[in-house]
Write a protein that binds this DNA or RNA. Structure first.
Lengths: 199, 199
DNA sequence: CAATTTTGAGACGTCCACGTCTCATGTGAA
DNA sequence: TTCACATGAGACGTGGACGTCTCAAAATTG
């Protein structure tokens, strides 16, 4: 049963995303198995968190695939991506917290690749004229991933209902990222000047 | 020199926010002091991270204070808050990652208090009619903090220029949170229904 | 039912980070 | 200069998590 490993890994994520220093006992108990079995599945702690990272990255890559994030209207692509990525939001939360501390070259390359795909999506949206250009595509990618990760944490802690997650992300993010048809886009230079409160 | 402790704590944040399992050697080196001096300043690891949490919470509370987040127009309050909170974004990143794993009752109470202040700000904005009501105030608080934390990480990793941080957060977040004057607000129920891509 | 495999529980030994100590060096004040 | 104090470097003991092992119980398979 190859799915058994994934089940354990998902349980590990739910623990590690909140308490990165959790003992293996705790992770094993969260997965419903004994510490011995955990060691039979994964040689050690290092291997475990490495596989957790890989699973998370593969899941996110799969989300980008099934959402066909690289094709068509960028706004629609973002909506699809959110819908598909939210179930794995906790894995994204783990990635956001752990970020780039892996020595594994393979993992870093995978991470870079997915980041690049996200970046390309928002860049395409800007070229299509649907996303604002005052906000850099890099920042849009960053913020998008932060919101997905935040949703993962919030759901785990019971602060957000899972059924509201996709709607919440989509509305908030697109509201800030989409270029409003009517209003002329403010230039970054004009907006950067320290604007005070109200006229 | 009371500021010495804070300097060390800030250095500790920059390490711990990215690698929560970092050894004390690493933290000491990041702070430019020896492990012995680190132990002289803080009795142990537990005390260190506890004080890091306290510093972070106090800084965020101070940001809410100096931004007078509890008064006046909610939109202007958010703009002020972003401007003041961004310099301490890394501390928020630490809080976001560590979240609620403290046994200390004092810290948890402090955390709850600041969360409540944020929540009240967005609730007030909704009552004033400036913030969208389809997005719950709880979610707005959550997302706001996530973005600030994300900016902290991004700045540390050099993915975002510090001078762009406040503008990026403000524009993206307010763009999604502000109620657009013209368009009628979509109801959550209508929006929740699985909307496909484009008509 | 019998045989095989898998799992859980527990007992070890090992290793490393932590906490404490001492001592030499460096720094500031008298 | 001299003294008092703080700091850095290093050694040392300890505790606890980790990794490995064994054995009994349970599950699966025939």
């Amino acid at each position: 049963m190859a799915t058994d490993r994934d089940t354990v890994l998902e349980a590990a994520v739910s623990v590690l995303s909140r308490r990165p220093t959790a003992h293996l006992d705790e992770i094993a108990r969260a997965a419903g198995i004994s510490r011995a079995t955990l060691h039979r599945l994964f040689p050690g702690r290092e291997a475990l968190i490495r596989e957790v990272g890989l699973l998370s990255l593969h899941r996110f890559a799969a989300a980008l695939d099934t959402a066909t994030a690289g094709e068509g209207d960028a706004e629609a692509a973002v909506r699809r991506l959110v819908e598909v990525a939210v179930p794995d939001a906790m894995l994204c939360a783990f990635l956001a917290g752990e970020n780039q501390l892996y020595d594994d070259e393979n993992i870093n390359a995978l991470w870079e690749a997915q980041t690049e795909r996200l970046h390309a999506l928002f860049l395409r949206g800007q070229q299509q004229g649907v996303f604002r250009i005052e906000l850099s595509a890099a920042w849009l990618s960053e913020a998008f991933f932060d919101l997905v990760a935040g949703v993962g944490w919030a759901i785990q802690d019971g602060r957000l209902a899972p059924r509201d997650a996709a709607f919440s992300i989509t509305e908030l993010f697109l509201g800030g990222a989409l270029r409003r048809a009517s209003s002329p886009a403010p230039t970054p230079s004009s907006a950067r000047s320290t604007e005070t409160d109200k006229p």
